[in-house]
Write a protein that binds this DNA or RNA. Structure first.
Ligand SMILES: [Mn+2]
Ligand SMILES: [Mn+2]
Ligand SMILES: [Zn+2]
Ligand SMILES: [Zn+2]
Lengths: 154, 154
DNA sequence: TCAAAAATGAAAACCATTTTCAGTTACAGA
DNA sequence: TCTGTAACTGAAAATGGTTTTCATTTTTGA
């Protein structure tokens, strides 16, 4: 199921690149594949390392360029963590808010935030035009909690 | 009123440095003063420029070091914007959520978010331990909206 | 198959932040 | 008020992530 959903994601992304007028090079596909398969928010270097398994001649520059394009196409998003501000994760259609494990970087998407009323109230009383909202929950996933207990630290 | 509240804030911060065991040097006070007086989220360079008015011999290094200490003491917070991840703003006691103007960087604090239920639901079903939440509204303040209309661009 | 445009990667440049270190300063205690 | 000393400072150098440059390679439509 994780595999098939990552296949589907990759297919969608290939189509998005095509219809955006971008060529489907093997370097780009290697980067797409890494993020499509991952359930984590990864930084550029880690994406680079993993993508080189698929495409050993890949350069780090192309990773950055491909990520830039993915952001522009709305396929990936930047994830800000307390420790590191430049991680990238797949955008899951529909749900925009993230639960991020500060230890392993895995992300989960959730919905159910009802900020509409709050945003309207804020806009109404200040004249502010709210264009975007960021909501991100940060903590420790179940697995990391268990691992940290094993290691002793908390 | 803005002036007196910035005076009060500066006084609080001086006390916090003192009781944290940090010396009150003129370099530090210049940095504190800038953030105490500002209602914006500023980056290190802008803080440096403004602080040199008070303390011309100030070095940029000390700005970074003082901001670091302010974060540790909970007096300032890092503000993440789409354009720039390293701005700093005063922490307003009680309310932790920000409304940020993406154009001028001014920040307003708001409360009234009720995320408790959401966070419990998320934690319950996933075993995730939510340690922190980031909620930030991004948009355009009334003044910037007016100025942008005048200039033609939107 | 071929030409043109797009894309690539190695190397260099860039730039915000951090580290180093020798000199300066704040301040507790005399 | 003076003094000793640890804390602090700023100039300069180092660092490290990201971007730019540019000659070469690849993709793709004709
Ligand atoms: Mn950030
Ligand atoms: Mn809250
Ligand atoms: Zn984890
Ligand atoms: Zn504004």
């Amino acid at each position: 199921m994780a595999a098939s959903s990552s296949e589907a994601r990759l297919a969608r992304w290939r189509a998005a690149f095509k219809s955006g007028g971008y060529r489907l090079t093997s370097a780009r596909v290697a980067v797409l594949r890494v993020l499509a398969e991952s359930q984590q928010a990864l930084d550029a270097t880690r994406i680079f390392d993993r993508a080189r398994v698929y495409e050993p001649r890949l350069g780090l520059v192309t990773v950055y360029r491909t990520l830039e394009t993915m952001l522009a196409l709305g396929l990936a998003q930047k994830v800000h963590c307390p420790a590191q501000c430049a991680r990238y994760a797949a955008v899951e259609p529909g749900h925009n808010h993230l639960l991020v494990c500060r230890r392993c970087g895995r992300v989960w998407y959730f919905s159910g935030d009802d900020l509409g009323a709050l945003m309207q109230a804020v806009a109404g009383e200040s004249g502010f035009r709210v264009e975007d909202h960021w909501l991100q929950l940060i903590g420790l996933c179940a697995r990391c909690r268990a691992e940290m207990e094993t290691e002793g630290a908390v």
